[in-house]
Design a protein around this nucleic acid. Structure first.
Lengths: 194, 194
DNA sequence: CCTACCGATCGGTAGG
DNA sequence: CCTACCGATCGGTAGG
């Protein structure tokens, strides 16, 4: 029945959303299934009617965000300049971090706790992702759009800076999301331009 | 006896060093006292002859690095330009991250697991630290050394970028420590200069 | 530094 | 979705 299916999936989504919040606050290993169940208002055992294991929760959180990032990169307009593409990448990641704060934070901080297969999948996905962006930066250097800075360091700096926005939020009064985004671009792109 | 004292303190240092490595690899909550003891070659119970609790180990790792950072900032040459001071700050943090890789990583990633008093001490120390650097950036903007970028975002980006070097190391063959440092400065200072 | 052990808590299952 | 429960493991202590 449609209702049953809808109820099932919305309960699972509630579990994933609550778990993302708790994993961010206390870490994956610092969060117990009992803590999680309590926040949701059921017994720990009942969680297993919706998910298979604690590890599966982490998988779903991490890969759902990772997939979004991969898609955006693949659908990027190849006719744009390197500068335009790097700028839109910074804007995209900044928005992802702000709009999907809990999940994005879990991805960048807790991926280390993925289990064997999922861990190596994530690591190789990320390596491929970073390499692709490095290629864009290198293009920009070859084109004389960018000054000669190590693409490896640039990509690391951009992605790390976005990650650092996990400290923001609290001071949301002093900077709006738009101001954060503009300043991220100004600083990180400014350091690239010739 | 001197020998006893030396042995005691060197054992404690071995515990702290090994713990830093494990906390970085598997997280604070993901590391058990039994894992730690095994790596050192003693029983878990014997750890307590050298340290008081698991939490104390984290305290010592985190605050020893935090103190080094605070000292460097306080001893900074106030007669230098804002640009010179920010540059030397980037260089200092990059070196700290590379030379004290395990402890620095634990500080930036595991401080969240400090207990009550130590946690609030760390948070307020860090806030004060960040504010001081923001002031330097603001000076640079007022002086027309820097373009008008939010000091808040700039400081976040610098410190986050340094943190991101935890992904480096493995590819140590492609970049030396010096190259990393030069490129950090080029990108992050480059984005500030008018 | 060890043996022996504590109560608490962990992720997860059986059976309804 | 719950009760009842599993074996494993946790940080830490007593006592030598």
């Amino acid at each position: 029945m449609a209702t049953t299916t809808r109820k099932r999936s919305s309960k699972k989504e509630e579990i994933l959303k609550t778990a993302a919040r708790m994993f961010r606050e206390k870490g994956y290993t610092g969060t117990s299934m009992r803590d999680l169940a309590e926040k949701i208002g059921i017994e720990a055992a009942s969680l297993y009617n919706h998910i298979q294991s604690k590890g599966e929760i982490l998988d779903e959180i991490v890969f759902s965000i990772a997939r979004d990032c991969q898609e955006q990169l693949e659908n990027m307009n190849a006719s744009e300049t390197a500068l335009q593409r790097i700028e839109s990448l910074i804007r995209f990641h900044t928005k992802m971090m702000i709009d999907h704060f809990e999940s994005y934070s879990v991805m960048v901080s807790e991926w280390i706790h993925l289990e064997e297969d999922k861990l190596s999948e994530f690591v190789s996905d990320r390596r491929r992702y970073v390499k692709k962006i490095e290629t864009i930066v290198q293009e920009g250097i070859d084109n004389k759009e960018f000054k000669p800075v190590s693409p490896y360091v640039v990509v690391l700096n951009i992605l790390s800076s976005v990650r650092g926005l996990e400290f923001w939020q609290k001071s949301a009064k002093t900077h709006t999301a738009e101001e954060i985004e503009e300043n991220m671009v100004k600083h990180l792109i400014g350091g690239l331009k010739l």
